[in-house]
Amino acid sequence: MAVLMEKKFPVEAGAYETAGEVSTTIKRTLKQLGVSAEVLRHVSVACYEVELNLVIHSDGGALTLQVEPDKVTLISQDVGPGIPDIGKAMTEGFSTANEEARTLGFGAGMGLPNMKRNATEFDIQSEVGVGTTITMSFALDMKG
């Protein structure tokens, strides 16, 4: 289906102070487009989680927002370091976050499972030494 809007936002590794600003921008953009509050909350939570993951775990990357008539898609791409064991990373409570992230209230090992819980479709591909790509789509008529 036709892509109505596509925007790419760079996310800097280790930028804890500004982490969340991209998610705020994306939320406000989608709100202006008239996306329902329910869908908006699912997109926002998943977006914030993935943005924090880029800040906490990656060597830098970017978030891409795509809007189509029937769905919103978020794509997170980073330049490393990659996840050695995706199964483990998807387990609630498993975390490799550093002390700084934990001090801010994150790094509890809830991020990836929570993204999957909020998205209609969730896909993660990762290669050690290359990077990780997470693709999440959200149906615009989703409920609950």
């Binding site: 969340g20 998610s23 705020t24 926002s44 914030y48 209230g105 994150f106």
Partner: peptide, 15 residues
């Protein structure tokens, strides 16, 4: 009891 801007940012995401 946590005091940092992420408390507000997290809250904004969840309405």
């Amino acid at each position: 009891g946590l005091i940092n801007p992420h408390v507000v940012r997290t809250s904004e995401m969840l309405d």
